[in-house]
Amino acid sequence: MLELHINGQTKRVQAEAETPFIYVLRNELGLVGTKQGCSLGQCGACTILVDGKALRACETATETLSGKSIVTIEGLKETFLQDAFIAEQAAQCGYCISGIIMTAAALLRTNPKPGKQEIKTALKDNLCRCGTHNRILKAIEKASQTHSESVRHV
């Protein structure tokens, strides 16, 4: 039995220690917002935040997360990012979006106002096959601008 801190809650999970976290998240905890893509750490669909950093749930053994703070799309505080994706209509099939929003959230935590090239670099290992890239880039750029402005005004 492992104890995990996820989205501000403590959860005990039955899964064996080496089980890739994606299966624990989606099957045992019922948090299906983290999408399963390649299962090889190549596509970014399953990106989560662990102690604020972007991590691939498919290549992370569950035991290594013990004592760390895990955030999934369901518990993401940066809802302004999601608002920006809606404003830009930045989705087609939408399967990659949750992982991309999590990658963007990790980026904005270390670099609150990234340039377009910095956003592109941060997303270099996130795949989108529908070709929604420009809307996604615009959504993240706008989200960072409006958010950093609102923070400054406060």
């Binding site: 989606r26 099957n27 019922g30 299906v32 917002g33 983290t34 999408k35 399963q36 999934t72 799309i73 369901e74 999601q82 994706f85 809606i86 209509q89 989705a91 939408g94 399967y95 979006i97 949750s98 929003i101």
Partner: peptide, 19 residues
């Protein structure tokens, strides 16, 4: 899009998510 809110929130939008 009618489906975008659920998709950006990470709701169970896909067949893959059905349990």
């Amino acid at each position: 899009r009618l489906d975008i809110l659920a998709k950006v929130k990470g709701e169970a939008s896909f067949l893959h998510d059905i349990r």
